[in-house]
Amino acid sequence: MDRLQPFISVSSPSVENGSAVPYVRELRAAEFALADNVWLDYHDTTGDPAVDRIFAVFDDGEVVSVARCRRHKDGLEVDGIFTTDSFRKKGYSRLAVSGLVEACHNDDLYMYAVRHLTSFYQQFGFDPIPESALPPVIRERYTWAGGNLEGAEVQPMRRRVGL
């Protein structure tokens, strides 16, 4: 069953074996608060419709996992990939990132990945890159690490344009 169903609205999800099948779609501006709720336990991250596209996994009508693509003046950054505790180990983050990558594949995508998740993101086409290969605005976000990203346990990654 295809769970990337972005043209099916949240009010009419597909049904399989009598229960709604979790699926991913992009949130509208008025729905950003749903993602903010999921991010409450994730560095108090909040979405900004002016620069963000948020992709959310719905399980039984509830947003349980999100991923964000933020537009900076010199590139797109992927972050905020987070699943509510009680819904983990169900492949929902994979679903959210799949949707984001498919929707935003017309641009290069950059991210800071937590080191132990680099192999996960490599499955979506992200490759590790040196920090110097990041667009300046995205690089500035981690100036607090003072160039010691290894110590900060994060790895810059890039996904080239294309499906």
């Binding site: 972005p6 043209f7 992009e26 949707g99 498919e102």
Partner: peptide, 22 residues
């Protein structure tokens, strides 16, 4: 507009995703 168009078509086994929500 895409939903209106898609409703007139039979996609069969073809996977179809539209990411133009906003």
């Amino acid at each position: 507009a895409i939903e209106t168009a898609a409703a007139r078509l039979d996609f069969g086994r073809v996977t179809f995703h539209a990411w133009t929500e906003r």
